[in-house]
Design a protein around this nucleic acid. Sequence first.
DNA 1: AATCCCTACAACCGCGGGTAC
DNA 2: GGTACCCGCGGTTGTAGGGAT
Length: 293
Amino acid sequence: MGRPPCCDKMGVKKGPWTPEEDIMLVSYVQQHGPGNWRAVPSNTGLRRCSKSCRLRWTNYLRPGIKRGCFTNDEEKMIIQLQALLGNKWAAIASYLPERTDNDIKNYWNTHLKKKLKKLQEGPDSGSSKHGFSIQNSIPRGQWERRLQTDMNKAKQALQEALCLEKPRPDNNKPIIQASAYASSTENIARLLKEWTENSTKPAAQMASTASSFFSGCFDLYEEFESLLGFESLGSSNSDFSQSPEDASVLQGESKSDLVGADHAPLLSRMPENWLFEDQGKEDLALASFSFEF
DNA sequence: AATCCCTACAACCGCGGGTAC
DNA sequence: GGTACCCGCGGTTGTAGGGAT
């Protein structure tokens, strides 16, 4: 009855991932693609549960991830989307293809929530240097109009961010995957570089070798892309994720059901309808903050 | 210099939906 | 149809690093 157990729960390693483990995982995904995580620990020899492998790939090793400082635009978009969608981090992340849901969630919890709370509690809570203001300090009619203006601006910003007007080939999925793995080699190579620089262990030599290997892979994929007439990753490792649909591909299957269920209809409603179509969400939206883009 | 506290973020946990057997 | 599992998601925790005392 049912499926066999996914993995042996005994002897499963927890805690931070080592560079060696990252290499094993990345090379496996390069060969087999993301998905079928159940098979990953047994096929790679990693003493990690499938869930941990998936998480590591999705949140850290996956190509096209931008790490570090959030821009003002990203920040504004997150706050606006959070007001509209609530804590649907995966949905929010689909509009910021270079950011993971975990990253956005962390940023919200550690920075934005605090910032907004401060603004609400502060004596001069009506406005701030960050460019957002709190609705209840403005007469209703005025801030409703302002909200509408802000929503239009938000929609415009979203459209720009998503580059919906940019055409792309219908059958580009395998190409994107190829690019994705190439970009993944950048991630792991960067990781290894940092590790090598900070390590005096003999293993650093192995890391260096592995880095060269991934660098070689990267060159191969660059060549592959140029043959097919696609923009080289050298110019931008994020340009291949121009739409949330692409982002879903980038993120493996992780966003597939989002695209298949909630997200695709949402996109089909862009640009004019989705922000306002659900009257039930109006109160939520009105309770949000407005911005000066 | 030692200790405490705070922050940031990677990773884990638990749950629900979907699905293979 | 029932069971066990996979997968994705959101909430939470653990911990390293930096600043304050």
